[in-house]
Deep mutational scan, measured.
Amino acid sequence: KVMEIKLIKGPKGLGFSIAGGVGNQHIPGDNSIYVTKIIEGGAAHKDGRLQIGDKILAVNSVGLEDVMHEDAVAALKNTYDVVYLKVAKP
């Protein structure tokens, strides 16, 4: 199931950690970017929809399929206060 989640960045950013990407696979044979941690009190935690194990398909208009881990981190960092995440639920 794919959904779009709109998050408003807090003082600590979006409030979640990711793993995965080309050269840094979270699941062997899979280059996808996965949510590995939700920080308590952060934007994602308060919103409640993003969960550990969700796959991040895109940030705003930037696709995160088959990208390097660093590029995924940069895509999440290089955002304004309002961030749209395209997410696939497991």
Rank of each mutant, 00 (worst) to 15 (best):
K1T: 04
V2L: 04
V2E: 09
V2A: 05
V2W: 04
M3V: 05
I5K: 00
I5G: 00
K6G: 05
K6W: 04
K6D: 08
K6T: 06
L7A: 01
L7S: 01
I8W: 15
I8S: 11
I8L: 12
K9D: 04
K9L: 10
K9M: 12
G10F: 04
G10K: 05
P11C: 10
K12L: 10
K12T: 06
G13P: 06
G13F: 03
L14V: 07
L14P: 06
L14F: 08
G15M: 02
F16R: 01
S17T: 07
S17A: 14
I18W: 10
I18A: 05
I18P: 01
A19I: 05
A19V: 06
G20I: 01
G20L: 02
G20K: 03
G21Y: 02
V22L: 07
G23A: 09
N24G: 06
N24C: 13
H26D: 03
I27N: 13
I27S: 11
I27L: 14
P28L: 09
G29N: 08
G29P: 03
D30S: 10
D30R: 04
N31L: 02
N31R: 04
S32Y: 09
S32I: 01
S32F: 06
I33W: 04
Y34F: 09
Y34G: 00
V35Q: 00
V35I: 13
V35L: 05
T36R: 06
T36L: 07
K37I: 04
K37W: 06
K37C: 15
K37F: 07
K37G: 11
I38M: 11
I38P: 00
E40L: 08
E40G: 09
G41W: 05
G41S: 10
G41Q: 06
G42M: 15
G42D: 04
G42C: 14
A43R: 06
A43N: 12
A44S: 05
A44G: 03
H45G: 10
H45W: 15
K46W: 08
K46T: 13
D47F: 02
D47Y: 02
G48L: 03
G48N: 10
G48D: 04
G48P: 02
R49T: 14
L50K: 00
L50S: 01
L50A: 01
Q51P: 00
Q51C: 11
I52M: 09
I52K: 15
G53M: 08
G53F: 04
G53T: 03
G53E: 05
G53K: 05
K55M: 13
I56A: 00
I56T: 00
I56K: 00
L57I: 14
L57K: 07
L57M: 14
L57W: 04
A58Q: 13
A58R: 15
A58N: 11
A58K: 15
N60E: 05
S61D: 09
S61F: 13
V62W: 09
G63K: 14
G63Q: 14
L64N: 02
L64W: 07
E65D: 14
E65M: 11
E65R: 10
D66L: 06
D66K: 12
D66A: 12
V67N: 05
V67M: 15
M68T: 07
M68R: 10
M68H: 12
H69G: 08
H69T: 10
H69R: 11
E70K: 15
A72M: 03
V73C: 10
A74S: 12
A74N: 11
A74V: 11
A74W: 13
A75V: 10
A75T: 13
A75N: 10
L76C: 07
K77F: 06
N78V: 10
N78E: 12
N78S: 13
T79E: 14
T79P: 14
T79D: 13
T79N: 13
Y80Q: 09
D81Q: 15
D81H: 13
D81K: 11
V82L: 12
V82D: 13
V82Y: 10
V82K: 11
V82R: 13
V83S: 06
V83D: 02
L85H: 01
L85R: 00
L85D: 01
K86G: 04
K86L: 07
V87L: 11
V87D: 01
A88I: 13
A88E: 15
K89P: 09
K89D: 04
P90G: 09
